[in-house]
């Protein structure tokens, strides 16, 4: 079991962020579709929770919904997002913008190339978080920015702070993004595929950095990725999403050791390994259904090797199996023999 590594002990872990029943709808010309449905999870203080899924699974929508940064046609129709005891969905937009975003939750994006403003210096972009909300002097803000840049492993930060994003390498830019997300010491940091655009050596460095920050500052991280290797590397707990729903939830150790949901099993089976048997890498047949064409019953049934008639007809509930929560009929304790 991955335990919290803080000195105070491992038993009293508190949830800093709890999402429950979160549903997001997008209205398009062809109608209204729910991108995610009934998404719920808790992020514990000082831990990393990974959301894994293929494109279209709803993992990015989930993170953007927490930040309330959904596109104009997206709307949260149900659910709660409770940050440190406060339901963000009850707060007026002004409060969210002024007190929450950048202050208590920050976000790092996938493309450090495009996520930084090309015409503002690194220093301007880091300090504006402080200058905007905390009313501290410009000089103090810059000193703090230099400190954070050093913290995220940028050499000679006094020089870098005056540079523009295009003068930095991809890895450096992502470090700048992380510094920007860290500067006001938020309670939660959401990282949306922060290493996908980087090459593997840089990816490893950034993951190490995030892990170190979590341990040193007790920052809780919500890590969105499609890469299971990254999950194994960095996360304490994991949520597997498929077609807008959470299909499995548990600690990384449990889920990787004993994946319960057929989709999770498929994903893990499709992971290349150095010690594994030779031969073709197994894949999951088919593709994630589009938001407009989600199948009835269990959304995974048309790709599932264990599908039975009930799966097409009835949407599965979530069952507690060992340490995990699984959305699959196979784990229904009242399952009748005939339907197997």
């Amino acid at each position: 079991m991955p335990l919290t590594r803080n000195s105070k002990g491992v038993t009293t872990v508190s949830e800093i962020l709890r999402v429950s029943g979160l549903t997001v709808e997008f209205s398009t010309e062809d109608g209204t579709f729910s991108a995610i449905e009934d998404v719920g999870f808790g992020l514990e203080q000082g831990k990393t929770l990974a959301i894994v899924g293929e494109s279209g699974s709803g993992k990015s929508v989930t993170s953007l919904a927490i930040m309330q940064l959904l596109a104009e046609n997206g709307r949260i129709t149900a659910g709660e997002i409770v940050l440190d005891g406060e339901n963000l969905l009850d707060l007026p937009p002004n409060d969210i913008q002024h007190r929450i975003l950048g202050q208590q939750i920050s976000m790092i994006f996938q493309e450090p190339m495009t996520a930084l403003n090309p015409i503002l210096t690194v220093g301007d972009q880091i300090t504006e978080v402080l200058l905007e909300h905390q009313g501290i002097a410009k000089k103090a803000a810059y000193e703090r920015a230099i400190e954070v840049l050093r913290e995220v492993g940028i050499p000679s930060p006094e020089k870098r702070i005056r540079q523009y994003p295009h003068e930095l390498s991809g890895g450096m830019r992502q470090r700048v993004m992380i510094a920007m997300g860290l500067v006001s010491e938020p309670k939660v940091m959401i990282a949306d595929e922060p290493t996908t655009a980087l090459d593997v050596t840089i990816e490893a460095q950034i993951l190490d950095l995030l892990d170190r920050l979590k341990r040193e500052f007790g920052t809780s991280i919500l890590f969105v990725t499609h890469d299971l290797n990254v999950v194994a590397d960095i996360a304490d707990d994991v949520i597997v999403m498929y077609a807008g729903q959470i299909v499995e939830r548990g600690s990384v150790l449990d889920v990787f050791e004993q994946p319960k949901h057929p989709y999770t099993q498929g994903l893990l089976g499709a992971m290349p390994s150095l010690t594994g048997v030779e031969g073709d890498l197994p894949t999951i047949p088919g593709v994630v259904p589009s938001i407009a064409n989600r199948p009835s019953g269990c959304r995974f049934h048309n790709r599932c090797p264990f599908a039975h008639p009930r799966c097409t007809a009835e949407a599965p509930a979530v069952y507690r199996v060992g340490g995990q929560d699984v959305r699959c009929h196979l784990f229904d304790p009242h399952r009748s023999e005939e339907s197997q």
Binding site: M67, L69, I96, Q97, H98, R99, I100, L101, G102, Q103, S106, M107, F109, E111, T114, A115, L116, N117, P118, E128, V129, E132, H133, M177, M180
Partner: peptide, 16 residues
């Protein structure tokens, strides 16, 4: 652009 989303994520005022 992505950097506008970043700016929103930072909680900047609309004017900024």
């Amino acid at each position: 652009e992505d950097y506008i989303r970043t700016a929103r994520a930072k909680g900047l005022r609309n004017k900024a």
